[in-house]
């Protein structure tokens, strides 16, 4: 009897842990949807070596659909700051794809918080690793703050800002 109770307790603990793990990793909560959206954007923005032009155009068209029209880009006093339409984002995407032989965007330390029913903020560290057509390897990290809005059931990035990790 004691053995049976012991087995039942073990099964109960494993089941509860399994349910939590399943919810945490595969649950369809809004936070997970948003996280997957950011990871998908990074994946679409990456370029594999030997990418064909039709494939590049297809990826660029997919990338532009992740953003609102227009989208605010705020990178301090940099010349790239300003508002970008979806078409401009797509065109810039094609331009940087042309510059690189291969490029990988990786997202680290992604934190998503819902700020309203249809708005959310994402803090992440974006890592870019690429090899230019001239053979120069490029590696950069940026701490990004993205504002996302829900438009017709789809989460779109409406603002991207570069944050300083440590600011005097």
């Amino acid at each position: 009897m004691v053995k049976l109770i012991k087995y039942l307790v073990i099964i109960a603990v494993i089941s509860v842990a399994g349910i939590f793990a399943w919810k945490y990793f595969f649950g369809k909560s809004e936070i997970n949807v948003l996280k997957n959206r950011i990871y998908s954007l990074a994946s679409e923005a990456s370029k594999k070596p030997g990418e064909s032009l039709p494939s590049a155009i297809m990826h660029a068209k997919t990338v532009e659909k992740f953003f609102t029209d227009p989208c605010q880009v705020d990178v301090g006093t940099h010349m790239f700051s300003g508002q970008y339409s979806q078409v401009q984002i797509g065109a810039n995407s094609i331009r940087y794809r042309y510059m690189f032989q291969k490029v990988t965007f990786t997202v680290h330390d992604l934190e998503v918080t819902l700020t309203g029913n249809d708005t959310a903020k994402a803090f992440l560290t974006a890592e870019l690793n690429g090899l230019t057509k001239s053979g120069q390897s490029v590696s950069a990290f940026r701490e990004l703050e993205c504002t996302l809005v829900n438009r017709d059931g789809k989460w779109l990035v409406s603002k991207v800002a570069i944050n300083k990790i440590i600011e005097k």
Binding site: D109, E111, F123, K164, I165, I166, E167, K168
Partner: peptide, 10 residues
């Protein structure tokens, strides 16, 4: 010298 304020999540 690298110093300043940082988010607590960091």
């Amino acid at each position: 010298h690298k110093f300043g304020q940082f988010r607590k999540q960091r």
